[in-house]
Structures are given as structure tokens and as C-alpha cells.
Design a protein around this nucleic acid. Structure first.
Lengths: 252, 252
DNA sequence: CCTCGGGATTTGTGATCACATTATTTTGCC
DNA sequence: GGCAAAATAATGTGATCACAAATCCCGAGG
């Protein structure tokens, strides 16, 4: 198996890294509600670690835009607006289009096979109405392409962008996802990778992102807000503890 | 005065933020040598603060790619390779081209005036052979354009990319910079902004970045390395203290 | 019933300490 | 004198504590 662009912190076993991975997982799978307040001590309590690694992990996520911090120091899951979605759409079209174009020029046979496998699994999950697996496989499909581009910095940037749009991608279900244009587009993308046609690969990737995020932008209310804030945080009076099941520390 | 995209941490007076700004300044102005080892305690000693804010600032810079951390836990200024420059070139062409295109559609009269002013100051500095001011004004010119795009996430991404290429931009002096194509290109970019011609603005910006970073990539040696490592760190035996003059804590 | 104030609580920030691991220097042997 | 091994120093990591600012809660006053 050829090695593909491996995240540089693959062997990082520090608590900070585990907390970071846990929060990232929780964010992308939608276990935090938009607008929800998330305190350092709460996370530290649930994960059973001290404040130090939590602070560093959450500060990084703030820097990446996955959390936002008010000037009056409180960390929240960002609310999404139409303008923000449109900005992210245009950025993602550029970067993920670039990655697809590079992948068309650089992908190995095995890497293309990975892409193809993910595409098949999307169809299977979708036929079963399994939205969670569907989303997971869509992610694998995209990142199989991006990994094939062999550009580590580009991959890191794209991961950061997915972290910001991720919690809102479930808004695509079930209405948008039923369109038959998705599978056809993915097939054309695979064909372009196979043929080494960078321009076509870029075009297909751009179209995919444009369609999905334009749809999400269209869900905004008259104020431009999408998926409005949950009624604040269900304030925990008791001290949080492991097993609160919001998320878990992922041990490797 | 119309509001333009203001950095979200404009009013952040925390030590962490000041350390972050100081290190960023030191990196972009080339006060750290590529490959140089930079320890937490060293920075803390020079800036006269404890490890805590230094750790958080440097961890963020590692996440942004401005420092790199070996698995055997030592933080270094990254070495640049031809492949990395070419990857950054292509990413920057996409994102800064996008920003220029957006700026052409959104720039106000005052924002265009800012761009024009920076362009004039580049010419002045260059005629004086003042490389440091030249670099500073080139940066101001570019970011005046990006700010006019009014896209905060895009601006943040571009800042991160400049942080990575910044220390190597002085390699453009004095040979590359003497080309007369730079000023003419900037004028065409200004004209495109004025005319609201997004495609032309994007083209000029892309050409500018392509020329500069392709030149830098061409400076690589036979191993693909650019500006090889300085002879390790001038190891400090005595404990570092304020006034070591490598960089200073910027107090607001 | 709503509004405003004041005290208790929560929460992020920064400093300090202990510890394990890595790096460096010194020592001892051939 | 050269080299390996032990000792010493350096360094990142995580926990804990103190503190100030922000927030929350509750009751007095209208």
C-alpha cells in the first residue's frame, strides 16, 4: 500500500492531542449545538483531565474557527450565517477544486481505488437510508481525493474548512441528498481522475461544493441565520463527569 | 468610514495574544533563522512571562505551520523546500486570486485609495533601495486588497499562508525585485479594482504570486532545499533575559 | 409583574511545580 | 587519545493554585 499524506501528528499521544481529536469528532458529528457555550472546565470534567490540555486544544480550535470566543471570554460553537456559508463555499471551491486537479495528475492506482470504494459505499448507505454512514462515507470520498493530491498543507487547510462547515452538513439531509446528480457527478470525478484530466476533476469538485453549500445558504432565515441557536446551554448544575455522553476522550 | 474586515482579536490584551503577535512579527521579519530551535523557556525568558502564555502562542503557531515540532519534542522554524514553495504558490494563487476578484466587486473608494497609496510607497521605497520598507509596503499593498474583499475567513487563511512564506520573501531581494513588471502589474490590478473587473484583478494577482514564488522555488539546491539551516542555535548557556534583542514583547 | 442592584459563583488567565523523556556533558575504560 | 556509558542538564507536559473579570441568582423597590 502506498503511503499517502499522513497527518503530521499521527503519533502524538499527548493528552492535548487526544482532547483536540475528541472535540473535533464531537463538532463534526454535530454533538454540540450551534451557539452552545462550552467551558474549559466542563470539557476537562467530562474527559477527566486537567485544564491545561483542554485549554491548548480549545485555543487551537478557536484559532481554526471551529469555536469562537467572545471578547468577554466565553467559548461558543459558532452560529452560521448565509454570508459565512457563501464565503466558505467560494473558498472551498477554490481549494478543493485545486486538490482535485492535483489529484488527477498525481493519483496512483490504489488511491483511485480508494475513491471508488468510498463512492460505492455512499450508494449503499444511501439506499439504506443510513444518513450517518452516508455522511461519513461522503467525507471519506472527498478526503480520498484530497489525499491523492499529495499536498500536506493543502490538506490541512481543507480539514480546517470542513471543521467549520461540518456541523451544518446534516442540513443536507434528507431533501438535498435525494438528488440523483450527486452519484453521477462523483462518477464523472472518478473518470477524470482515471483519465488524468485535471480541468474536468476540478470542475466536478467545484460543482459538487457549489450545489451543496448554495443549498445550505438557501436555508437561511430572513436575518441570514441558519439553524438558529439552541436555547442556550442546558446548564449543568452538578459537576460534569465522565459518562455524560456528550463526547468521550478517544484513547488510541 | 466603512468597516472592513477587522481581525477578531483586535481588542485581545492577553499575554498569550501579545506573545503570539511578537513571535509572528519576529518570524515574518526574519529574526529567526530557518531551522533554528526555539524553546518555550527561551521565549518566556526573553519576553519575561511564564511558560503558560508562551506555550499557547507557540502551539498555535505550530498548528498554523509557522513552527514545526519534531516527534522528539523540539520546536523549530521550518526549513523550506522547493516542493513546499510550489505547493504554497498554488494555494496562494487560488486564495489571493479569489480575494482580488472579490475586492474588485466590493471595494469602496477609500479602500482603493489605500491600495493606491501602498503602491506609491513601494515605488518610493524601491527608488531609495530601502528593502525593509519595500517589503513592508508590499505586504500593506496586498493586504489592502484582501481587506477590501470583506471576507474575514479568507483573510485569516491568507495571513496564515503569508506567515509560512514570509521568512523567505527576502530572498526576492535584490535581484528579482528589480524587474519592472512588478509596478506595471500593480497598476493593472488597481485599474481592475477601479473598473470592478473581477477576472482581471484575479489574473493580475495570480501572475504576481506565480512570478515571485516560482523565482523562490528556483533558488533551491540540488536537494530541493532553500536557504539551508543556520548552524543550529547559538546555544545560550546563560539564562535568557529581556533585552536579548531577538524580539520584544509588543505592548499595546 | 418587571427592573435594577449586590453578593455569590463561575470562568478564563497566568504562574508555579513535579515529572518523564530527551539531549548534552562528563567520566571511565581500553 | 577515542569511544561508550553514566551522570547531569534541559525541555515539553500536565496538574494545581490564585486571581480578576464576567456572569448568574435573588430579592428589594417601583
Amino acid at each position: 500500500m502506498p503511503r499517502i499524506a499522513t497527518p503530521p501528528d499521527a503519533a502524538d499521544t499527548s493528552l492535548r492531542q487526544q482532547v483536540y481529536a475528541s472535540l473535533r469528532e464531537a463538532l463534526t458529528s454535530g454533538r454540540f449545538a450551534p451557539g452552545q457555550k462550552v467551558t474549559f472546565r466542563y470539557v476537562a470534567g467530562v474527559l477527566g483531565v486537567s485544564l491545561t490540555p483542554v485549554r491548548e486544544a480549545m485555543r487551537r480550535l478557536v484559532a481554526e474557527g471551529a469555536f469562537e470566543m467572545n471578547p468577554n471570554r466565553s467559548v461558543r460553537v459558532p452560529l452560521m450565517t448565509r454570508d459565512k456559508v457563501l464565503e466558505l463555499r467560494d473558498i472551498r471551491m477554490e481549494l478543493e477544486g485545486l486538490a482535485a486537479a492535483k489529484a488527477a495528475l498525481a493519483a496512483t492506482r490504489n488511491q483511485i481505488a480508494e475513491v471508488r470504494r468510498a463512492a460505492r459505499e455512499i450508494i449503499v448507505a444511501r439506499s439504506r437510508g443510513d444518513g450517518a454512514t452516508d455522511r461519513q462515507k461522503v467525507r471519506e470520498f472527498h478526503f480520498a481525493v484530497y489525499a491523492a493530491a499529495g499536498q500536506p498543507t493543502l490538506l490541512r487547510l481543507i480539514e480546517g474548512l470542513w471543521l467549520q462547515t461540518g456541523p451544518y452538513m446534516n442540513l443536507l439531509y434528507p431533501d438535498f441528498i435525494s438528488s440523483p446528480r450527486g452519484p453521477a457527478g462523483r462518477q464523472r470525478l472518478i473518470d477524470a481522475l482515471q483519465a488524468g484530466d485535471a480541468a474536468a476533476a476540478r470542475r466536478e469538485m467545484e460543482n459538487d461544493i457549489r450545489r451543496a453549500l448554495s443549498y445550505v445558504a438557501g436555508l437561511a432565515d430572513e436575518n441570514g441565520n441558519i439553524a438558529p441557536a439552541v436555547p442556550a446551554t442546558a446548564r449543568k448544575r452538578r459537576s460534569p463527569s465522565a459518562g455524560d455522553a456528550i463526547f468521550e476522550l478517544r484513547v488510541n
